[in-house]
Nucleic acid binder design. Sequence first.
DNA 1: GTCTATAAAGAGATAGAC
DNA 2: GTCTATCTCTTTATAGAC
Lengths: 212, 212
Amino acid sequence: MAERLTRQESRRRTRGRLLAAAAELFAERGVNGASVEQIAERAGYSRGAFYGNFAGKDALVAELLNERTRREAEEVREATAGAATRDEAFDALRAWNRDRARNLDSWLALRMELLLHAIRTPELRPLLAEREQAARGALAEGVRRELDRGGAAAPADPAFLALIAHALEDGLLIQRVLDPGAVGDEAVVDAVELLLRSWTALGGAPGEEGRG
Amino acid sequence: MAERLTRQESRRRTRGRLLAAAAELFAERGVNGASVEQIAERAGYSRGAFYGNFAGKDALVAELLNERTRREAEEVREATAGAATRDEAFDALRAWNRDRARNLDSWLALRMELLLHAIRTPELRPLLAEREQAARGALAEGVRRELDRGGAAAPADPAFLALIAHALEDGLLIQRVLDPGAVGDEAVVDAVELLLRSWTALGGAPGEEGRG
DNA sequence: GTCTATAAAGAGATAGAC
DNA sequence: GTCTATCTCTTTATAGAC
């Protein structure tokens, strides 16, 4: 039985390698700037293997978008499910962002490449939109919990506050890529913490201000 | 005498048309997806005219980045200089954003294309970074003024608050492109207004801390 | 300055061998 | 499944006519 899945598994492995190589190259040179030959070569194959596993470049891009979207949605779920308290949630967020900071350029480049591709391919937009909704939804729940906990009246619809917090992620990472000196390592977490404090009206506590 | 500048002016005009056509096509199909021939054709010329005015596609991209950066910095200056009161500033901001909303897709696509290009071309990064700094700086001044006016202590360094407000622009526009139903037409202005209100309403914070 | 023609390289995709 | 060879189209860039 150990060999029963070999065919399928082998196919999956090859496809996975091609997808990973494509992700790298898309970040480096853009979707349009990376050729099928380069993708196959970096994955350790030839063009033939590529066309044996994907109908063409467009098909690979669509699948990459799909795969990454699904994985990120999972990560969001796991991250939020794991943390029970506010501090735990922020710790998880910090870890996540530290990770991302390590290769911010390529991470952001890939995200924007896929985003641009989705903008230009209307039928793919809902896919990406879904992931964003999930992220915003999880955030909204967190915000609501914090507001309840503090017993404070929300300054606005929690969904809107979550939208702000979520949008900050892309926005701050863009600023950081362009000007690393002006945007701290943990700006995203710092900003979200600051906002949450403002909204829950806990701002008076002098002890732990600003960044960590 | 009316013809004295014809040569220079003619050259400027042709270059301007090529740059405008390139901007359109870059938004539609990406920098790498738009060919020199397509650019020249949309501008109403042939490839020959293109190469007569630019050393190649890279040179055009660099100049486009330069031109747009300069223009946007000017617009920031004008917008902030014109508005004396807070309401005037927000009105200007609203008008600016309504304008942008009309063709959000192509606007955002072009911005991200140029951003990606800057990420991949290190020597161009400072150019874009400069524009962002100017925008953040203008915002920071506005925030500081508001805080002073309200007599409230800042919950953080005004520069950090300005960074948050500025980052929100990109972030919210991205969310809006992906999910127009979930992000209102004036989300950017609404969000900035909300934040400013939260920050000015927060009294007794301890001086100015925040990021370093 | 702008055109047409063309060289040279690179792209996506297919066919057939193994 | 993966390789090599090949077809066809597109691309960048140059040359020379006007």
